[in-house]
């Protein structure tokens, strides 16, 4: 199988329609006939990343590569960056505002969830420049 590349723009600020990119990716992964558990874990990682870009970074872009043996998801934004990645990775740490919290976001569990449901996760971030969160999900052969 050749590597399949998918690109999804994510609009900032729109918490109402948030999750559309993840929904679309999930449908595509289903059509590709990937194992259900792989699809579930990839969708969850993508959703948490998508919501973070909407809430914390005024949008960005998700780039997905489906390879033979893994799915690589890059969530790229030009938002404010994360000053303390270790702190951001802690369960319960959140800077989400009241609007997001009223909708059920802001538990400070999104990044920990991405770590938990992926096989590998890296965060490249620079304050004032932006953040790229990359997750890899292995496809059992």
């Amino acid at each position: 199988m050749e590597t399949i590349r998918l690109v999804y723009p994510v609009e900032g600020g729109d918490l109402i329609e948030a999750g559309e990119a993840s929904s679309k990716m999930k449908l595509t992964l289903k059509k590709l006939g990937l194992p259900q558990d792989v699809i579930r874990r990839a969708s969850i990682c993508m959703y948490e990343g998508e919501i973070n870009m909407v809430i914390h970074a005024d949008g960005g872009q998700a780039e997905v590569e489906v390879e033979m043996d893994q799915i690589v998801i890059r969530m790229i934004d030009s938002g404010p960056g994360i000053p303390d990645v270790e702190q951001a990775m802690q369960e319960g740490y959140s800077t989400a505002g009241s609007t997001a919290r009223e909708l059920g976001f802001g538990a400070g569990m999104g990044l920990p969830n991405m770590k938990r449901y992926s096989d590998e996760m890296t965060i490249d971030t620079e304050v004032g420049k932006g953040t790229t969160v990359t997750v890899k999900i292995k496809i059992p052969q």
Binding site: L15, I16, A18, G19, Q36, D37, R40, I44, Y47, E48, L103, G104, F105, G106, A107, G108, M109, G110, P112, N113, R116
Partner: peptide
């Protein structure tokens, strides 16, 4: 809390919630 649900709810669970927005 949505990220708690994502963290803890297993596949094929029935999910009980009082949240009624589209997320």
């Amino acid at each position: 809390l949505l990220s708690w649900v994502i963290s803890r709810a297993g596949q094929d669970c029935a999910w009980l919630t009082i949240m009624s927005n589209q997320n």
